[in-house]
Design a protein around this nucleic acid. Structure first.
Ligand code: DTP
Ligand code: MN
Ligand code: MN
Length: 600
DNA sequence: CATTACCTGTCT
DNA sequence: AGACAGGTA
């Protein structure tokens, strides 16, 4: 089996770096970024390494940080109309993504400050050319299982890297390690490019899948990178608490430890797939069985931009919203931000959202949401539609909200690409197509197929989901679920009498009240084709599937690998069990690793 | 009384 | 498709 080469690049104390670039006086000083209310100095969401040295951590209050570190510089997240605005960090994140895209590989934006890369093809191309890699090319690289015990840290690191290089030359029977070597060199170059072009430092993990690359990225920070040779997985797992693994950090991790009586990842390997499936459901069981062996088949999806745009705000305790006026006010404010970001997104990505989701909660821990079809994107429309959706589910009497609202959120999603964007219509994903590149800049499918019904939209089978739900069901005091024809447009029940809507006749909107109009048709806003209104949603889904495979952003000229990619990678993920290797026991453990993973 | 933001899987 | 739980940054 030929392993993929996957890297995870994560920015160092990202929000702090953004603030330090804006205000260079802060460079070299302890900094933390705080968000929300003035209450006790605000809550900390990012801490730079100088401040971490004095024990300041995320979740702390500004006041506590001042105690631990009197010289700390607390920077507040910008606030607009009493609402945190994190746009500057999103914009900075885009800069980074743009640099990464100069390298020829599939890039998956995983959060505001990190991205997964599939370097498999890029590495192969690189090996086709020059092949020499020396320790000089890997000045900030660490290799799991090659830690040296030398007093001098840097000397030890360098010696360990050289040791690894000696053991992993191109002539080895398998080339897994050699390909990691080449990848490590590329990632060194990429990180340097990120720094040169943005001024930000970052760290990276390089391994054969997403879970492992993410895991090792955190081992050496800041401004360093860590490689995990496949043969060192058992060694790594020996001292690795299960909750450190992505997706096991929550309830699943807890029940895993509880039900199996284990603490470290190495202990997971002795359970049969059948037992894991029986205890944690089929899907989770297979995933666990695989990850216990260092196997994770989740693909790096070529996606550079978020799938949804939203914002929200909490109103804890007595600040809960109690009147319709308050509610309207905050809906307006949220709509202002969403609208502004939406306009920008349209300019940059030429897409429009088809869905609007309003979320709210009436007590801590509860949550409710209502979804509606979206056809207008100006602020008043967003606010109006959101209010209508909300009013369908909560009861208001005499301008008083029956149960005070403690949380309110607006988000839009299910984007479709704008038509008429010459050249973009022809791209239609065809499941049976053999070849397609997954490099972000070019997703080429063989013969472009026009507007045809498409089976099998890309199957999304992310790992993990949860059986726990049934163990502890939420108390359903919930909604009066009187509304809601699925897939109707946003429209109030109150309007019923006078159908206020006037100018929207050209829009694709439906109201389930109009029982007699189930046969009515309207032009699809995407393709113009006449479609039954009640089928519009399903129809639009085909466009959504299309959008998933559209071309994302136009990276500039490739810096490193000059060749455009042409070959294919599998798109569909499968959970394949694998009976495999795992070269038994590196008996000895390195303390530094142990303490790294056990601390905190 | 951490906060805001995004993603995925299951159930219906 | 929509509602919701769970997970992560
Ligand atoms: N729980 C949170 N709530 C709000 N914002 C968060 C939260 N966690 C992280 N962020 C923001 C601030 C971080 O700078 C940014 C990236 O997160 P993350 O990569 O986990 O840490 P970091 O970049 O600050 O430090 P590190 O150097 O350890 O990566 O996302
Ligand atoms: Mn980070
Ligand atoms: Mn991160």
């Amino acid at each position: 089996m030929r392993e993929r080469i996957v890297a995870l690049v994560d920015m160092d104390c990202f929000f702090c770096q953004v603030e330090q670039r804006i205000n260079p006086e802060l460079k070299g000083k302890p900094v933390a970024v705080v968000q929300y209310n003035k209450w006790r100095g605000g809550g900390i969401i990012a801490v730079n390494y100088e401040a971490r040295a004095c024990g300041v951590t995320r979740h702390m209050r500004g006041d506590e940080a001042k105690e631990k570190c009197p010289e700390i510089n607390l920077v507040h997240v910008p606030s607009i109309n009493d609402k945190a605005d994190t746009s500057r960090y999103r914009e900075a994140g885009k800069e980074v993504i743009n640099v990464i895209c100069q390298f020829n590989c599939a890039v998956q934006r995983a959060s505001v400050d990190e991205a997964f890369l599939d370097l498999t093809e890029a590495v192969d191309k690189r090996i086709g050319g020059e092949t020499q890699v020396s320790a000089d090319h890997l000045p900030s690289t660490h290799v799991v299982g090659f830690e040296s015990q030398l007093e001098n840290k840097e000397e030890g690191r360098s010696e360990a890297v050289q040791e690894w290089l000696r053991k992993s030359d191109a002539s080895s029977e398998d080339d897994h390690d050699y390909r990691l070597v080449v990848a490590a060199k590329m990632v060194e170059e990429m990180r340097k490019a990120i720094f040169t072009q943005t001024g930000f430092t970052c760290s990276a993990g390089i391994a054969h899948n997403k879970i492992l690359s993410k895991l090792v990225c955190g081992m050496h920070k800041p401004n360093q990178q860590t490689v995990l040779p496949i043969s060192k997985v058992p060694f790594l797992y020996e001292t690795l608490p299960v909750k450190k693994v992505r997706l096991l950090g929550g309830k699943l991790g807890d029940t895993l430890m509880e039900k199996l009586g284990i603490n470290y990842m190495s202990e997971l390997e002795k359970f049969s797939e059948a037992e894991l499936c029986q205890k944690f459901e089929q899907r989770n069981g297979q995933w666990l069985y695989n990850i216990a062996r260092g196997i994770d088949n989740e693909e790096v999806e070529a996606r550079l931009i978020p799938k949804s745009i939203g914002c929200c705000k909490r109103f804890p305790g007595k600040t809960a919203l109690k009147t319709k006026q308050e509610l309207e006010h905050w809906i307006q404010e949220l709509a202002v931000e969403v609208c502004a970001r939406l306009d920008k997104d349209y300019e940059e990505n030429c897409r429009r959202p088809r869905n609007l989701v309003v979320q709210w909660s009436v007590e801590v821990g509860s949550s409710n949401s209502k979804t509606g079809f979206l056809s207008h994107f100006d602020q008043p429309s967003l606010a109006r539609d959101a209010m209508i959706l909300l009013c369908k589910s909560i009861s208001i009497e005499n301008s008083k909200v029956k149960v005070p609202i403690q949380f309110l959120g607006l988000s839009v999603g299910k984007f479709t690409e704008e038509r008429n964007k010459a050249n973009s219509i022809a791209k239609f994903f065809k499941p049976s197509s053999a070849s397609e590149t997954k490099v972000n800049e070019t997703i080429v499918s063989d013969p472009p197929v026009p507007e045809v019904k498409q089976e099998a939209p890309p199957i999304k089978t992310g790992p993990m989901s949860f059986f726990l739900r049934n163990l502890k069901k939420k108390d359903p005091e919930k909604n009066d679920a009187r509304v809601a024809a699925p897939q109707t447009s946003v429209e109030s029940d109150e309007d019923e009498k006078e159908s206020v809507k006037s100018d929207s006749d050209k829009d694709v909107e439906t109201d389930k009240r109009c029982q007699g109009e189930e046969e009515a048709e309207a032009p699809c806003p995407q393709c113009g084709k006449s479609v039954k209104i009640l089928d519009m949603s399903e129809h639009l889904d085909h466009h959504v599937a299309q959008e998933l495979h559209k071309e994302l952003n136009q990276p500039v000229t490739p810096v490193i690998p000059p060749q455009p990619s042409t070959s294919a990678l599998p798109k569909k993920r499968k959970y394949t069990k694998s009976k495999t290797q795992s070269a038994g026991g590196d008996a000895k453990k390195i303390r530094s690793i142990q303490s790294f993973f056990n601390k905190k």
